[in-house]
Nucleic acid binder design. Structure first.
Lengths: 343, 343
DNA sequence: GCGTGTTACTAACACGCGTTAGTAGTATAG
DNA sequence: CTATACTACTAACGCGTGTTAGTAACACGC
């Protein structure tokens, strides 16, 4: 059943050297001289014996696990249709693999975050942490900071001086709503992408508000709904807007996923897009351009976001570079048919 | 900076007992008696000192990492819009957390699979492995089996006697195509969900073929295209079908994601769904019902698939239950408007 | 008073590796 | 010919935990 484990001692015996030498050779420790002949012999021995170092032992002795943790702060069912997440994973794997690392993914309910990832950090299970969807009401983050544990936020948390990679959600939302305003719309509904304790959601809503304000338009709470990550919530909230008789000629839905649901609700009631209702989304998910009509949206390169975040994390872990920085990636309004600007 | 680590020795000293006692108390080892007073004292000491066991040391000493690996056999960019994956993750987290485990996610390119997850297994980095998207040309699986390493496939691999959880892709595809045949269609295009070395893709295509055959219809290669996981490939392949002048009145696209892309290609050419072309997808992704028109599709509960797979893996790891079993989950044809059956 | 149990613990080993300090042996300099 | 330096290694410690074998103290029956 369980095959006898091959240890570095076995390799050493087989090659007729000490275990130390085996370790030095296999880890390519420079500044220490090993004769080419010995080196060769060790490598061959390791190969023929099929030696694979024990991860736990390496971690214990070397004080690093070569694993980084990606922590998602959501309710589990919220990720079930989260294409943004898959894009993040895509970008992450690239950089993580380049650095010979592995990825531990975990999700923590907004309630009991403390134990969850703080434990992983303090147990040395991971060398660094990427936190997606930081929330203002998160307490464990402070503990992480006090520990001086390498962490990078995907998203932002004003106040805390964490390393973070993000887009300017506020400005991006303003840009999207400005576009609708420029097209002559004055009554614009808004469905947020999530609960407002998520900073991204709050910022996007604020961008919406600012855009209205800059044109002297009043913020009307009756035109605003709070979404909840998934397609269904987009459908539900748009349905509710229509049900309550809200009057609007355009809608800004702060996530493409929800925009897809909202679109379905509109169509169900017979509204034509963009002729009767103009629609703008957020994220530019891979399927946005294939919707009917193609969705006007704010492009965020989630893949790039992930690349930058992980690259930054590795810099923090190596201890070089400025200890903490905030990176803000560009966004871009992608005009397609759903807003009515393009014919 | 790096806080001084609190070890179990510290707890022992603080409580005035031996390190062994601390270990026995904290791990709730029964069949060994510890006086309530001592137990209490140890627990309090651990609490006040903020003791958190070192994961690597526990793994090394206890010979298990409490981590299971989810391995995806794809090219990284293929997961960028993979909603099926997020559903799997959703289901997985439930069961994995219930069992006090963690999840290491990794993706391996179809080429060099051997090193990738075989290493993780042999390095004892993970206690068990879930393999999504097994391929017929995978060699490392045999090695895993020889090692007797706990593994469960999400999907199937005929020949190998691995534990697996899957749907009957062949029958499900037959059901979908049968539905189109029953509606009177005789020329039905097919776009597979992926390269045919993925068993799921091959099986679904075979189901399509069987359905045609059972009605005495010939299999026409000109009506078939190979997809590649993402929305875009659905668009491209449907575009190609139309470009080449293929004649058909219905299409079976073996993945909702690709169906979304295919739908866009059809609309671009002015084809109306379902009036001129009937469309059936596969997977029943969360957004399928919100498309325009709502997509007729084969429902697979990815969440349930993941639950069953992980539950089975834990059973294998515990060594109880029948060593190896194949579980086949039910599928269901969800009839919506895109096939033209519903008005 | 002796053997047998039971209770409540502990000493000591094992897990497999990284790494530092040190040591023979040989080459080079003065 | 001795002192210094360099090469090519190795012995031994430490990482922090789980676990087995053992021990002192005490109770009990006869």
């Amino acid at each position: 059943m369980a095959v006898k484990r091959v240890t570095s001692q076995d390799v050493a015996d087989y090659a007729g050297v000490s275990r130390t030498t085996v370790s030095l050779v296999l880890n390519n420790v420079d500044n220490i001289k090993i004769s080419p002949a010995t080196r060769q012999r060790v490598l061959e021995s390791a190969d023929t014996l099929g030696y694979i170092p024990d991860a736990a032992a390496q971690t214990l002795a070397g004080r690093r696990s070569r694993i980084i943790g990606l922590i998602l702060t959501r309710r589990p069912h919220h990720i079930a249709s989260d294409v943004f997440l898959t894009q993040i994973l895509n970008g992450l794997f690239e950089i993580v693999h380049e650095n010979g690392m592995r990825l531990l993914v975990d999700i923590v309910e907004p309630q009991h975050q403390k134990e969850a990832y703080l434990q992983m950090a303090r147990a040395n299970r991971i060398d660094g942490i990427l936190l997606s969807g930081p929330r203002a009401d998160d307490e464990a983050l402070n503990a992480l900071e006090e520990d001086g544990f390498p962490a990078v936020l995907i998203g932002q948390l004003p106040g805390a001086n964490f390393c973070s990679v993000d887009v300017d959600n506020r400005a991006a939302a303003r840009m999207a709503v400005d576009h609708l305003l420029n097209l002559g719309h004055t009554r614009i509904a808004c469905i947020t992408n999530a609960n407002l304790s998520y900073t991204a959601a709050a910022d996007r809503l604020d961008g919406y508000r600012q855009a209205l304000h800059s044109r002297g338009l009043a913020f009307d709470p009756d035109l605003v709904r709070e979404g909840d990550f998934d397609v269904e919530s987009g459908y539900i909230q748009m349905h509710d807007l229509l049900e309550k008789g809200a009057q609007f000629t355009a809608a800004f839905v702060a996530s493409d996923a929800l925009a897809l649901g909202a679109k379905a609700a509109l169509r169900e009631r017979g509204w034509r897009i963009p002729e009767q209702i103009a629609l703008v989304g957020f994220d530019d998910l891979p399927y946005a351009q294939y919707l009917d009509p193609p969705l006007t949206t704010v492009r965020i390169s989630a893949v790039e976001l992930a690349r930058q975040a992980s690259a930054m994390l590795f810099r923090v872990m190596d201890g070089d570079g400025p200890a903490c920085r905030q990176i803000t990636l560009d966004t871009q309004l992608i005009v397609r048919k759903s807003c009515g600007a393009e014919r």
